[in-house]
Structure formats: structure tokens, C-alpha cells
């Protein structure tokens, strides 16, 4: 028991299971939230798009709408929830992987498990949701030219990579400052500075080339709800994972855990 605890600091597979559970729940919560609040907006945006297309083709039938009718809107609503769950599960896997790689030796007890889990979720939110989202905000259906989609995907993926690299650098400098004995204010300001610099670097990327022919109020509401869906996803992922991981640590009686 003691031997295996030393050689395998984290029982990997149970932790992966907890990551999947937390990710699946997070995706479900985010998907249902968006089904209730964001779908009415998307339906409205699609209605407007069809009107625009009909007007452009001189009152004939809407070409853009026709091309999209592989599925009914009802099926696409279901697709939203399924997509959110798939994304949650996938993020759960990477969350677990990052957690294990970052914190290989469990030196502290459950309280610190909570701090680590929620802290990692905050970092994930900044790196993958907020920073890329500030550079390339979400757009409702009806925005997005099929001809530029490959270019936009390249930009979007680049923004995700830059976000992750920025947060990795911020943490690296924070930990190095800790080892060098720098004070907390210096370390926190350094990390925050790196995050701001990352955001600035994201604005060196080219703009989204597409026009956004959507009423401003609808666009704003949609973007706020998109951000809310991201926040909900990471919040549930981080808190559920941290809770489950803390319980796992307690259940195994991690010996270096004098305080609860």
C-alpha cells in the first residue's frame, strides 16, 4: 500500500473517471442552460438570415436556408446539448491530464485539492475561453462566410494556442518567483501582466474577415450568453472535479493530510 502510494502518486484511472464525470456534467449544464436561453436567439438570427437571403435573391426562395436543411431546427437544438456534452467530456480528459502533470506529488491534503482544481479551471477559462473569445467573439448563426471558414479556423486555433502558451508562461514565472523567494504581490502582478500581454498578442492576429449583419442588441445578447455558457462549463468542471478529487484523496487516506 505504502509502496504503491509512493510509486503512483495519483491513482490515474479513478482520477480520469472523475474528470470524465465532471466534464460530462459541466457540458450537460452548459448545454441545457444554452438550450433554454441561447436557442431562442439563434432561432431569431436564423429567421433574419432567411429574410436577408430571400431579399437578396429577389423574393425567390432562400438559397442559404435551403443548403442548411440537412436537419430540422429541433434536431439542431438537440445537437447543441450533445455537442456541449462531447466538449465537456473531452475537456474533462485534458483537465485530468493537466492536473496530473502539474501536481504529480500530492504533498497536501484535500483543501489544496480544491484550490488546485478550481485554480486549474480558472486558468482553462482564461486560456481557452475568455482570451480567445475577446479576440474572436462568438457570432450567432447567419454570420460566417463559407468561403473564409478555413482561414477563420486557422485564426481561431492560433488564438487558442496563444491563450494556452500565455497561461503556461504566467504560471511558470509565478512558480519561479516563488522559488526565488519573491513576494506574493510581485508574483501575482507578474502573472497578471503576462495574461494582459497575451491578450495584447492576440490582437496582433488579423481580424475576423466576415461582415456581421446582425442587429446590435441581438449580437450583444448572444455574446453574453456565449460567455455565460463558457463560464458555466468551467465552473461546473472545476468544482465537481475538485470535490471528487478531494473525496478520493480522503478515501485513500493520503497520509500527509493532518488538517481534515
Amino acid at each position: 500500500m505504502t509502496v504503491s502510494a509512493e510509486t503512483t502518486p495519483y491513482p490515474l484511472l479513478p482520477l480520469l473517471g472523475r474528470g470524465l464525470a465532471a466534464g460530462g456534467l459541466a457540458g450537460l449544464a452548459s448545454g441545457l442552460f444554452s438550450l433554454l436561453l441561447a436557442e431562442p436567439l439563434m432561432d431569431r438570427a436564423i429567421g433574419l438570415e432567411e429574410k436577408r437571403a430571400a431579399a437578396a435573391s429577389g423574393g425567390g426562395h432562400a438559397h442559404a436556408a435551403e443548403a442548411e436543411e440537412l436537419f430540422t431546427r429541433g434536431t439542431q437544438h438537440l445537437g447543441l446539448v450533445v455537442t456541449a456534452v462531447v466538449v465537456g467530456l473531452a475537456l474533462g480528459v485534458f483537465f485530468t491530464l493537466a492536473y496530473v502533470l502539474l501536481y504529480r506529488a500530492p504533498r497536501h491534503g484535500p483543501a489544496s485539492t480544491w484550490k488546485r482544481g478550481t485554480g486549474l479551471a480558472c486558468a482553462g477559462f482564461l486560456a481557452l475561453s475568455l482570451l480567445p473569445g475577446l479576440r474572436y467573439p462568438a457570432n450567432p448563426p447567419g454570420v460566417g462566410d463559407g468561403g473564409t471558414v478555413t482561414e477563420r479556423q486557422g485564426l481561431w486555433l492560433a488564438a487558442l494556442v496563444i491563450g494556452v502558451l500565455g497561461l503556461v508562461l504566467a504560471r511558470h514565472l509565478y512558480v519561479r518567483g516563488e522559488r526565488a523567494g519573491h513576494g506574493l504581490p510581485a508574483r501575482q502582478l507578474t502573472a497578471a501582466g503576462v495574461v494582459v500581454a497575451t491578450l495584447a498578442a492576440l490582437f496582433l492576429l488579423p481580424d475576423n474577415p466576415d461582415a456581421v449583419p446582425v442587429p446590435a442588441a441581438l449580437l450583444w445578447d448572444f455574446r453574453v450568453l456565449s460567455l455565460a455558457a463558457h463560464v458555466l462549463l468551467w465552473t461546473v468542471l472545476g468544482t465537481v472535479f475538485a470535490t471528487l478529487a478531494a473525496r478520493q484523496a480522503r478515501g485513500e487516506g493520503v497520509q500527509r493530510d493532518p488538517v481534515r
Binding site: N139, P140, W156
Partner: peptide
Amino acid sequence: FSHDGRHLFGAP
């Protein structure tokens, strides 16, 4: 099928 999810999460 994932159309709405893409728009919501900001994927192109």
C-alpha cells in the same frame, strides 16, 4: 448537427 454548438462556443 453540431452547428448551434459551434456558434455558441465561438468556433468558426
